[in-house]
Design a protein around this nucleic acid. Sequence first.
DNA 1: CCTACCATACCGTCTTCGGGGTATTTTTTA
DNA 2: TAAAAAATACCCCGAAGACGGTATGGTAGG
Lengths: 214, 214
Amino acid sequence: MLPEPVSRILLIDDHRLFNDALKSLLNEQPDLTICGQVFKASDAIHAVHRSSPHLILMDINLQGSNGIDLGKAIVSDYPTVRIIMLTMYNQPKLLDETRRAGLHGYLLKDAGTTELLRAIRDVLGGTTSFDTSVSSSPTPTDDPFGDRFASRLNLTFREVEIIALIREGLSNEQIADRIHLSPETVKTHRKNIHFKLGISKVTELVQFAIKNGI
Amino acid sequence: MLPEPVSRILLIDDHRLFNDALKSLLNEQPDLTICGQVFKASDAIHAVHRSSPHLILMDINLQGSNGIDLGKAIVSDYPTVRIIMLTMYNQPKLLDETRRAGLHGYLLKDAGTTELLRAIRDVLGGTTSFDTSVSSSPTPTDDPFGDRFASRLNLTFREVEIIALIREGLSNEQIADRIHLSPETVKTHRKNIHFKLGISKVTELVQFAIKNGI
DNA sequence: CCTACCATACCGTCTTCGGGGTATTTTTTA
DNA sequence: TAAAAAATACCCCGAAGACGGTATGGTAGG
């Protein structure tokens, strides 16, 4: 019997438990092997160099630093490596960014095992895999981010998106650049957010965001 | 050979992938079995009734609704059930709440597999398991240096104190009033904090504070 | 005694934020 | 199709923060 070709996968995610658990999940697949796991963005490049993976599964939120930028950096150095971004947040903008960055997949962490394995095999097979449930979110008010607080507080899609960016530490100007808006518009959204949440300071906003996992 | 006693575990977490992965991780343990997984808080009680688990692993952030409250509700209905809360955030406040709610464990998601298994076995064995890396600061205001971050970053007592007040959402003026300083002095401390942490914005500071449980 | 460090305090300048408006276009929904 | 909601954008102004200095009194350690 011919030896089955095995694909090496590198995990990059600062949630150790998730990482470990994923590892054990993938170990059940005979044709997939974990060649490493990394918890910090700063260790990533080194790990890629050492383990030369075929595929990287990477969280988009790597403690402050942007997973997409890291992914871009990796593919520019190692063009044969394929990368799937994992994220908790259902944001078409992030999906678009991922696609535009030339990465190969985008999957929500609340996807099922089946979806994950299919995405992995698709991407290893040379195609891309972008979670369709993200781009085709039919009614934003129904369940835009899988979170209930948004509808409870009547937050719109745009507002939640901007909260997330404020939480990341971006200024109005930077947010405007990132999502292609006028800084004035960002200010308007921000005022509405403050009104809806009944707050008046960035600090309160960041605490709200973290509390609600934005 | 006597049949090994097997403990039934119920997973409650809205991150499906994490859930699945955890499942596969735990399946490697012969004495632990997953009796169910639930993604929404609203399904939890029903699942507990149906599968009567010995132990519940539960995310503290269940899409908007509070995992601690849910846990409290469960133990009041099913007093023999034991519950470990999982969370991404290193907040002594949450740990305390968990403990006061009469729940049995608190574990960070960036803990390792070993910690998880030990926590599970401890809690099943009748003791509680509260992540010491969170609670290790028994008196945060008294001794912020018990935590490594303060000494690691060369933060002084005053600086840690001011970080906490900034996190609370106070302005320089309010902080000055609170601890009887000139607002200008607060600004100076603030500059030094920014320098030591390598940051430049309040938002980053708040995130640092929450991450380190200040 | 000298050095290092901490806590204290002030000054000036520039940027960003907060809060008050108003208004247009697009999308959604009733 | 009309009304409502969301997203876009601009104006002004005052408050607060960010960042560059400088300086002084106290205290601990070599």
